[in-house]
Computed example of a mutant assay.
Amino acid sequence: MLKLNKLHHIAIICSDYPKSKKFYTEIMGFEILQEVYREERDSWKLDLSFNGQYLIELFSFPNNPPRVSWPEARGLRHIAFEVDSIEDSIIFLKENEVPVGDIMIDPHTGKKFCFFDDPDELPIELYEK
């Protein structure tokens, strides 16, 4: 068995770098660790952390192709974050003009969860603690 320590990061390629940067920092609450413009690739790389843990690399690349990602395409299905209150989270997202799906109940745990999309329609799940 491969000996893994922890998840290191998730890499996301966006189509509109300023819009995605704003979404992940101002809406999702990630902190910027490092932001680098890579001139040779005409690409931004933004390293983001949450609660001191490095989690997301946000990239921009020119002319990147769209990826089918919703609802059941092969590949990464969604990323999920734990929250204390689904209801409070939905209120905040809606106040910031982020459309949110209905609250659902996990049939195995009885916990509440919901989905919304990032600016490139990457599905994001909120799962109540």
Score class of each variant (00 low, 15 high):
34 Q>C: 07
19 K>P: 09
61 F>C: 01
56 I>H: 05
64 N>S: 14
8 H>Q: 14
100 V>I: 10
102 D>Y: 01
46 L>R: 06
127 Y>N: 02
1 M>Q: 12
100 V>T: 11
23 F>Y: 15
23 F>R: 12
122 L>W: 07
6 K>G: 05
47 D>A: 15
81 F>N: 11
15 S>G: 13
58 L>C: 07
55 L>V: 07
30 F>D: 02
54 Y>V: 03
59 F>L: 15
13 I>R: 12
99 P>F: 14
68 V>M: 00
12 I>A: 02
64 N>H: 13
102 D>Q: 07
101 G>V: 08
26 E>T: 14
118 D>W: 06
91 I>Y: 04
8 H>V: 15
120 D>F: 11
82 E>M: 05
37 Y>S: 07
66 P>D: 15
124 I>M: 12
8 H>F: 15
81 F>Y: 11
35 E>M: 07
74 R>S: 00
124 I>D: 07
56 I>V: 08
123 P>G: 06
94 K>G: 05
74 R>T: 02
69 S>R: 04
31 E>R: 09
115 F>Q: 09
61 F>V: 12
125 E>T: 07
17 Y>K: 15
126 L>E: 08
83 V>W: 02
71 P>W: 00
78 H>F: 09
115 F>K: 06
77 R>C: 05
109 T>H: 04
68 V>G: 00
22 K>R: 10
22 K>G: 05
31 E>W: 01
64 N>D: 06
43 S>L: 02
95 E>H: 10
20 S>R: 04
39 E>W: 04
70 W>P: 00
64 N>P: 02
54 Y>I: 00
